[in-house]
Structures are given as C-alpha cells and as structure tokens.
Design a protein around this nucleic acid. Sequence first.
DNA 1: CCGTTCTGCCGAACAACATTCGGTGCGACG
DNA 2: CGTCGCACCGAATGTTGTTCGGCAGAACGG
Lengths: 153, 153
Amino acid sequence: MDELDSAIVRELQRDARQSNRDIARKVGVAPSTCLERTRLLRERGVIRGYHADITPSALNRGVQALVSVQVRPLSRAVIDAFKAFAHGLPEVTAVFVMAGNDDFVIHVSAQDNDRLHAFLVDRLSQRKEIVGFRTSIIFQHLAKHDPAPLPGA
Amino acid sequence: MDELDSAIVRELQRDARQSNRDIARKVGVAPSTCLERTRLLRERGVIRGYHADITPSALNRGVQALVSVQVRPLSRAVIDAFKAFAHGLPEVTAVFVMAGNDDFVIHVSAQDNDRLHAFLVDRLSQRKEIVGFRTSIIFQHLAKHDPAPLPGA
DNA sequence: CCGTTCTGCCGAACAACATTCGGTGCGACG
DNA sequence: CGTCGCACCGAATGTTGTTCGGCAGAACGG
C-alpha cells in the first residue's frame, strides 16, 4: 500500500468508471502497470467492489430511517441470527452491530411512511429476541464517497 | 424508468466496472441502446456516480462510530451550518439529518480509539451550538450495495 | 566488488471495447 | 390510411483493456 496504490484507490473512489488509461495518466505510470496494481488491490481485498450510486427515490425508497434495536439474550447465537435476519430483509440497506445502549442500528428505506410502518410492525417486531427498538426518520443523508485522507496518516 | 432502466441500474449497482457490452447482453439489448440509456440515467440524476468500495482498514480507518448530536437553537441557520461543518471534516464519512430526539447522526471513522477520542473532544465538542452528543462504537458494518427490489414495488 | 536473481515497470501488439450515426420498424396520432 | 416521432439496431472507427517479452534497478551472495 504505497503512494501509487493510494493514488489509484483515490481515483477509483472518485469515479470507478473512468478508463484505466486515464487513471494511469493521472497517477503517472503506464497503463499496464496501473492495471496490474488494480488487479492486486482487488486480490488483496483492498478494493471490495465497484458500485453505482443511485438516487433512493428512483428505487422507490423515498423514506429512510435509522432503527436502534436491543436484543436479549446477548449471546453470539442471538446476535448472529438477528444480524443475518436483518441483512436479508429487502428494506434494510445497512446493519450496524454496536457497542453501547443499542445492540444494532439498522438503516431502513421504504416507499412511503405506510410501508415503513408496516415493515416495522409486521417484520421487525415479530422477532422474539427484540426487547425494544426506536425508529428515527432520516430527513437528509449526506454520504462521502470520496473521503479526504485523515490528517495524521 | 421502465424495466430496462431498472435492469441496467441493477447491473451497475452490482458491478460498476463491467463493460457496456456485458450489461447490454445481460439485459437483452444492443450495446448502443444500453449506452444511450445509461447516459440518460446519468443525465436525469438517477445515477449519481460510480465509486470503488474500499476496506476501511486500508484507509487507516479501523475504528468507526455513530455520534448522535443535539444542537440548539433548532433554526435552519444552525442546522445548515452544523451540517456543512460536519460534512467538511475528514473523519466524517456520512451525515444524517434526523427527526426525533437527535438532530444529527454522524458516521465517523478514525485510525484508532485515541484519534477518535481526540476528534470528538478537539473538533466536535468545540462547536457551541452542540448541547449534547452520544458516541457509540461500531463493531461491524454490513452495507448492502446491491439491494433486492422492494416487495410491493 | 562483481555476478546473479528477483521484482516492478514499460511499450508494443492484438483483441475487445466505447461511441457515433444513418437507417429501420413500430406505435401514436391525425 | 398516411405521416410523424421515438426507440432501437448494426456497422464503422477510434479508443481501450489485456497480455507478454524485455529491461533496469534493487537485493543478495560470493
């Protein structure tokens, strides 16, 4: 993970669909070198994939929420089972396993408030390991797909 | 946004770096048609960009947290200012503007616990509009970059 | 200090690709 | 029934991905 790798990663974070030749030119190496580096980054697991960022409303997901969930008992079996369950639900776009008061935070998106409510009541609250959950609506979601490097790194 | 558009979007969510020809073959149209559709999806803002998904530890971001923040007064000026401030910090990878008890939830990632703590104390808590915040460490973060379509959609 | 080995990079070659554009079929509309 | 407009197609062309042989410099050992 030298400076060249970082530069390639940065470019691919910024725009994953630009040509390998463009990236090579920007980072200052031959296209063949850049391609080999990228292949190795993928192989090493540094690059996990390339994904299009889609407007949620275009996917009929105009309403989003964060749901804090507490489960009991706090055993590995229960945690893994709930994690897998949540991750498998189509309305769920992310699962955070947490330390602190809440055991999970689930990022959920639905077509409208009615369907969000139905999801919470019909799917989530069915699970017997849940001893409590709190839902907070998301007004706005600003994601940083191209984060600036950390100061002291 | 017909069935063909959805299929193209699905493919680009799954793998944004596959060739236009491959996508065209999978969705069953000519490459030129597929390219034109993709161009329009971008132009309409449905596709917001293409980004590489990078392992956080490779970016020196091994520790992640969700920080719930309350600010006062709850005016547009204060909310917009804090939102811009948070979004500009390099440790911040996402900002959620919320309804409910918390006004913001901030997704933060740092190199280690020390730097996370330093960030919270030196950067975040400096802001005078903050009247309270609560930090929860993230043990695990499962994101779904290729969500299954919603049932009733 | 020299020879060997190894590693990473380069540039050329070729197959695959993106992109453009004129043509065509089909449904809508008058 | 004729005409218009729209979406798609396929061929053409310049560009790109990908492979591979070779080369230079570092690392190592004698």
